Simulated assay, not measured.
Amino acid sequence: MNGAGGEAKAVDALPRFVTLASHEGPGLKRYRASLARFGVVPEVVWTGTPYPGHLAAMRLLGAHLAGLPADEIVVFTDGYDVVLIRDPAELHERFRSFAARIVLSTEPGFTWKLPGRLAASRRYPEGAGRSGMYRYLNSGGYVGEAGAIAAMLSELDYASGIDCDQTLFNKWFLENPGRAALDRDQEIFASSACQSGLERKLYRFDGAHLVNTRTGGKPFFFHFPAENRLCTAHVLDMLPFDLPRLPVRRRDRRNYILNVIESRPTLWLDRPAYPLEDIVGLVAFRVLPAAVLAGLGFLAWHVLA
């Protein structure tokens, strides 16, 4: 539910903020703190501990939303790796500008754990918006009418047995053209998916908002999927307010270097990461090391022969 704060009219215009969580934790605390800056208290749909998996969580979320007025505007985001970075007073208006019942966040990567990944990616609509980078949906954030979102969640292909919500969202989107819009300019949702290490190049603070330098979008939320805490700090350091930080781990620093190598061509070419990032990873982390080892082996053999 939305907490008291600001003028009554502005509070009434806010959507309902909903998230999923299995337990309290530092990421959820940060999420709550980011909403509390604007007097917002989220509804948390508790999944139980241990986390039952994405399919079970989506069913719980769908059941929760099905109990709300069908035309009520709801914004869902992940809870442990998302922060609200902009006053949500204009969020309802921004959503309406898409002229869609559901607006889904986007990213450069394509998640598909069913057969035929490349063929499925080619079925995706060509990237619109001001950049070709954000072609594919990201299931960590969406806003829309409660009834439309509940219907979408009920229609996911649970029978596939694939416990990957993003795969099933992609499948639903491809099978239901026109029923949801994509936030391809990051006007509502920003995500660091497939872009870890590029934060300072892709975003800047203009004195009032965090701005995507490729699209001009001024997002309300920032999502850090598979959170690299070093990259998260890069984003939070741009903002003029303080939010709880999660300690940077050794693996964050190691993965940062690997992520930068994979994601740089996406930045240079201003295009989606898939399949480019997979090709770069294959060459950089498999072909080149194998070639170097083979070369050293050949050199050693030649010297010893």
Rank of each mutant, 00 (worst) to 15 (best):
A148I: 03
A148S: 09
A148K: 04
I149C: 05
I149D: 01
A150H: 08
A150K: 06
A150F: 07
A151I: 02
A151W: 11
M152W: 03
M152V: 03
S154Q: 08
S154D: 10
S154C: 00
E155Y: 02
Y158H: 02
Y158C: 00
A159S: 08
A159E: 07
A159K: 03
G161K: 04
G161R: 04
I162L: 07
I162Y: 09
C164L: 06
C164D: 15
Q166N: 10
Q166L: 09
Q166S: 09
Q166T: 10
T167R: 09
T167V: 08
T167N: 09
T167C: 09
L168W: 12
F169A: 13
K171E: 14
W172G: 11
W172I: 10
L174E: 12
L174T: 13
P177A: 08
G178D: 12
G178N: 14
G178P: 13
R179Q: 13
R179I: 10
A180W: 05
A180C: 09
A180P: 10
A180E: 11
L182D: 08
L182A: 07
R184L: 07
R184A: 11
D185H: 06
D185W: 04
Q186V: 10
Q186G: 11
E187F: 12
E187L: 15
E187C: 14
I188W: 15
F189S: 13
S191L: 11
S192H: 14
S192Q: 15
C194N: 14
Q195M: 14
S196G: 11
S196I: 13
E199S: 02
E199V: 00
K201W: 07
R204K: 05
F205W: 14
G207P: 09
G207L: 04
A208I: 04
A208L: 07
L210Y: 03
V211I: 09
V211C: 06
N212A: 02
T213I: 09
T213A: 04
T213H: 06
T215W: 01
G216S: 02
G216K: 01
G216C: 03
G217S: 02
K218E: 11
F220K: 05
F220P: 04
F221T: 06
F221P: 07
